[in-house]
Amino acid sequence: MNIATCPFPAIAITATDYAKCGSTAYCYVEPRNVVRAAKYFFEAGYFIEDVCGLDLEEGFEVVYHFDSFTAPGRVSLRLVVPHDKPVVPSIAGVFPGAEWHERETTDFFGVVFEGNPNPKPLLLPDDMTLHPLVKEQKKRQPAVNVFVVHRLSEGKEPTAAKKKPADEDEEA
């Protein structure tokens, strides 16, 4: 998969070193495009592993891990939403298994998944207003402090991913 042939609108796709970070690719999308991306993974035969939240200085990062039964190789689909308006479209219509993962992320981070068919608290009490995994402002780290992208090839630019030739992506 690379950004030129990517069938859904992606911001950046980086082929990563599976041996180091456990994913074959990071794929960043705009929150509004996440359902299209999920549809692509669904049609490509992936299953959903989990949906994770992460509290960063830039906002809440939501990470979807997809893997395949037939051709193992984890892909992590990522998006960032601002702290003051953490709204993401739900992908439970594509992967029904995402419903619980999304509800868990809402419990822990307060990220709202619009369109979740059953948006009740799942693991935490229904009257709890605290989101336990939201960090205090001074403890939040910017993304550059926690992410070391293990690219497959020696990339020169440390931040945004660029278009890569297709053959590099196949190595994973």
Binding site: K20, C21, G22, S23, H65, S76, N145, F147, V148
Partner: peptide, 8 residues
């Protein structure tokens, strides 16, 4: 070291 990983 800093960084992230997924292990199953």
């Amino acid at each position: 070291p800093r960084g992230e990983t997924y292990f199953a």
